[in-house]
Design a protein around this nucleic acid. Sequence first.
RNA 1: AGCGGGGUGGAGCAGCCAGGAGUGCUCGUCGGGCUCAUAACCCGAAGGUCAGAAGUUCAAAUCUUCUCCCCGCUACCA
Length: 488
Amino acid sequence: METFYVTTPIYYVTAKPHIGHAYTTIIADILARWNRLLGKDVFFLTGTDEHGTKIEKAAKEAGKTPKEFVDEVANTYIETWKALNISFDKFIRTTDKEHEKAVSEFITRIWDNKDIYKGIYEGWYCVPDETFITEMELNDGKCPECGRDVQKVKEDAYFFALSRYKDDLLRIFEEDQDFIKPPSRLKEIVNRLKGDIKDLDITRKSVTWGIPFELDKEQTVYVWFDALLNYISALGWPNGGKFIEFWPADVHMVGKEITWFHAVIWPAMLLAAGIDLPKTIVSHGWWTVEGKKMSKSIGNVVDTVELARKYSADALRYFLIKEKPIWEDGDFSESGLVSRINGELLADLGNLVARTLTLAEKFKGKIEGEEEIADNLDMSRIKELFEVYDVNGALNEIWTFVRSVNKYINDTEPWRLGGARLGAVLNNALEALRIISILLYPFLPETSESMQNQLGVKLGSINECKFVTFDGKVKRGKNLFEKIEVKQ
RNA sequence: AGCGGGGUGGAGCAGCCAGGAGUGCUCGUCGGGCUCAUAACCCGAAGGUCAGAAGUUCAAAUCUUCUCCCCGCUACCA
């Protein structure tokens, strides 16, 4: 059976998930659900990144041990994903035993291949913040976080020979223009890669909250090196059956700020170990909130679970996907969310279902007839958009069809009709709704199910998105969406 | 600074790569139609010197050059 392996980044557990995390994860969920509808064997991975000084520090501030702390935060991620109906197949944590074992195995392999060597790490350290700072991050020679003086540190460390893979990577990017999406990001990465590439230090002596470095137990593995390996450790690499079945990944969904890690460092690591590269890295844009960058200091971090509870997971999913092209940045606002609920989910879709079902329930004749609106639905376009991971484009296309069905009902005026003609119009409208319920399943799983209940049909596959004779038993249920009253 | 993206009616976008009357979409405003539907849906109208300048061309939002402005990335924030 054809497989599909999609991943989100593993999220760093210093804080609860916000809409940015939700966005990445929702896109991945939509891809997973769509590919299941296509009949593929899907593996959808998400999880948490739990090592490093920042977590150690956050734990201390919370008065907890690192382990207690990461358990707690990892749980809020799992709870959030449940609240948003994220259909992940596995939730990996970098503190999982299997993961730690895989990391050690990986390091041993590339050591044997001479891609790791011992050297001296030189950098800056902020004592009160307990964080390492790179030359680039320095702000006027001071700590970028707290503005205090930093201290030069020198310690033994192990390095990964990233620079050795520069030419290989450039050749790969040249040959496979789709390796990084969108093209503008590919350009950024290529230009940067053409510059001066330094080897990466991948261990720290003074960090204790990390995976012990296999070759020198005084050191721990640098968080990023550890974290990236989750994509294969989750499949049981090196010998797991899932690894054989699902690797290479079809798509790593990532936020634009971590493109470099996924497009350069991660492939270099895989090349070093002789493992196939993932097929595509999709790098999406960011959300601002009410026009401002999301940050804890501004205090505009949006609580996802609260929003989902207030409006519904489907409404939030819909907004995030419909609001902006995935490559671009966009702005989140609660008023924007409400406007899409009232103006689109309710006015276009909810209303369409309500008016059609009312007409169908009253009709006593036979619902059958020629298709009249199949041309309004461009299935091949929708499939193409999914193939390039443009879920925003696909949803727009589906929505165009939803609107066209409302127009069809207006044009045919079924409330004036009767007999065979009414049967034919209803057949078109009901079939359209059945098809829409399938197409919306990846985006709005609860709404899709509710539509199928009211139509008296079962969720079909993508192959069933074509007009035939409607054979459901309609029963109008409660409204799909309720109007959100806006206080003036 | 380097690299990348963007500046299109009141708002948000498409259109640009392969030039052909300012074309399109969503929201907002105004007017109308309809009454099956959650005051919903459908139709129509107003509104733009396509950031600015120069150039190429019979023809430029679209190609070239320059200028201005906004945003992002630059080694661990989705």
